[in-house]
Protein backbone atom coordinates (compact mmCIF):
# COMPACT_ATOMS: atom_id res chain seq x y z
CA UNK A 1 0.00 0.00 0.00
CA UNK A 2 1.44 3.37 -0.93
CA UNK A 3 1.48 6.09 1.72
CA UNK A 4 -1.18 8.01 -0.23
CA UNK A 5 -3.57 5.08 -0.13
CA UNK A 6 -2.83 4.54 3.53
CA UNK A 7 -3.76 8.11 4.31
CA UNK A 8 -6.99 7.80 2.34
CA UNK A 9 -7.87 4.59 4.18
CA UNK A 10 -7.14 6.22 7.53
CA UNK A 11 -9.20 9.21 6.50
CA UNK A 12 -12.07 6.94 5.54
CA UNK A 13 -11.97 5.21 8.91
CA UNK A 14 -12.04 8.55 10.70
CA UNK A 15 -14.90 9.79 8.52
CA UNK A 16 -16.95 6.65 9.14
CA UNK A 17 -16.34 6.79 12.89
CA UNK A 18 -17.20 10.48 12.98
CA UNK A 19 -20.45 9.86 11.15
CA UNK A 20 -21.49 6.92 13.32
CA UNK A 21 -20.65 8.82 16.51
CA UNK A 22 -22.60 11.89 15.37
CA UNK A 23 -25.60 9.66 14.66
CA UNK A 24 -25.44 8.53 18.31
CA UNK A 25 -25.00 12.11 19.57
CA UNK A 26 -27.91 13.48 17.53
CA UNK A 27 -30.14 10.41 17.31
CA UNK A 28 -31.55 10.43 20.84
CA UNK A 29 -32.83 13.99 20.63
CA UNK A 30 -33.98 13.45 17.03
CA UNK A 31 -36.04 10.41 18.00
CA UNK A 32 -37.46 12.18 21.02
CA UNK A 33 -38.81 14.92 18.78
CA UNK A 34 -41.33 12.34 17.49
CA UNK A 35 -42.32 11.09 20.93
CA UNK A 36 -45.13 12.85 22.77
CA UNK A 37 -43.93 13.75 26.25
CA UNK A 38 -46.19 12.33 28.94
CA UNK A 39 -45.63 11.04 32.44
CA UNK A 40 -44.60 7.57 31.28
CA UNK A 41 -42.05 8.95 28.86
CA UNK A 42 -40.77 11.28 31.55
CA UNK A 43 -40.52 8.39 33.98
CA UNK A 44 -38.62 6.41 31.37
CA UNK A 45 -36.18 9.23 30.66
CA UNK A 46 -35.56 9.93 34.32
CA UNK A 47 -35.11 6.27 35.19
CA UNK A 48 -32.86 5.75 32.21
CA UNK A 49 -30.57 8.69 32.84
CA UNK A 50 -29.53 7.56 36.31
CA UNK A 51 -29.30 4.02 34.99
CA UNK A 52 -26.75 5.03 32.34
CA UNK A 53 -24.40 5.98 35.19
CA UNK A 54 -24.94 2.72 37.05
CA UNK A 55 -24.58 0.65 33.89
CA UNK A 56 -21.27 2.40 33.19
CA UNK A 57 -19.87 2.16 36.73
CA UNK A 58 -20.90 -1.30 37.94
CA UNK A 59 -19.27 -3.29 35.10
CA UNK A 60 -16.18 -1.11 35.66
CA UNK A 61 -16.07 -2.38 39.24
CA UNK A 62 -16.81 -6.00 38.34
CA UNK A 63 -14.33 -6.18 35.45
CA UNK A 64 -11.68 -4.04 37.15
CA UNK A 65 -8.91 -5.16 39.47
CA UNK A 66 -9.13 -5.00 43.26
CA UNK A 67 -7.65 -1.50 43.20
CA UNK A 68 -10.45 -0.32 40.90
CA UNK A 69 -13.11 -1.76 43.19
CA UNK A 70 -11.57 -0.31 46.33
CA UNK A 71 -11.24 3.02 44.54
CA UNK A 72 -14.96 3.14 43.73
CA UNK A 73 -15.83 1.96 47.23
CA UNK A 74 -13.66 4.71 48.73
CA UNK A 75 -15.36 7.34 46.57
CA UNK A 76 -18.75 5.98 47.63
CA UNK A 77 -17.96 6.11 51.34
CA UNK A 78 -16.24 9.49 51.29
CA UNK A 79 -19.07 10.98 49.25
CA UNK A 80 -21.71 9.71 51.67
CA UNK A 81 -19.61 11.12 54.50
CA UNK A 82 -18.68 14.58 53.21
CA UNK A 83 -21.35 14.98 50.46
CA UNK A 84 -19.03 16.87 48.10
CA UNK A 85 -17.63 15.29 44.94
CA UNK A 86 -14.01 16.51 44.78
CA UNK A 87 -12.68 14.99 48.03
CA UNK A 88 -14.54 11.77 47.18
CA UNK A 89 -12.99 11.55 43.72
CA UNK A 90 -9.55 12.46 45.09
CA UNK A 91 -9.77 9.78 47.77
CA UNK A 92 -10.83 7.19 45.18
CA UNK A 93 -7.89 7.95 42.90
CA UNK A 94 -5.47 7.99 45.82
CA UNK A 95 -6.79 4.59 46.88
CA UNK A 96 -6.28 3.10 43.40
CA UNK A 97 -2.79 4.56 43.06
CA UNK A 98 -1.55 3.56 46.51
CA UNK A 99 -3.06 0.08 46.34
CA UNK A 100 -1.27 -0.53 43.05
CA UNK A 101 1.95 0.92 44.43
CA UNK A 102 2.02 -1.11 47.64
CA UNK A 103 0.48 -4.41 46.53
Amino acid sequence: MSPDNALAAGGLVIAVMTLVTLVTRYGGVFMMSFVPINKRVEGFINGMSGSVLIALILPMAVEGDLAARLSLLTTLLVFLLVKTPLPAIGAGILMAASWRYFF
Binding site: V29, I45, L56
Partner: peptide, 21 residues
Protein backbone atom coordinates in the same frame (compact mmCIF):
# COMPACT_ATOMS: atom_id res chain seq x y z
CA UNK B 1 -15.68 -0.83 12.77
CA UNK B 2 -19.18 0.61 12.33
CA UNK B 3 -20.79 -1.87 14.71
CA UNK B 4 -18.16 -1.46 17.40
CA UNK B 5 -18.24 2.32 17.21
CA UNK B 6 -22.02 2.35 17.30
CA UNK B 7 -22.30 -0.09 20.21
CA UNK B 8 -19.76 1.74 22.36
CA UNK B 9 -21.26 5.15 21.62
CA UNK B 10 -24.94 4.15 21.64
CA UNK B 11 -25.15 5.47 25.20
CA UNK B 12 -25.06 8.96 23.64
CA UNK B 13 -28.53 8.24 22.21
CA UNK B 14 -29.87 7.82 25.73
CA UNK B 15 -27.89 10.71 27.16
CA UNK B 16 -29.19 13.02 24.43
CA UNK B 17 -32.75 11.82 24.93
CA UNK B 18 -32.52 12.56 28.65
CA UNK B 19 -31.68 16.20 27.86
CA UNK B 20 -34.51 16.53 25.34
CA UNK B 21 -36.89 18.47 27.63
Amino acid sequence: LILTTFAINARHLLMGASLYP
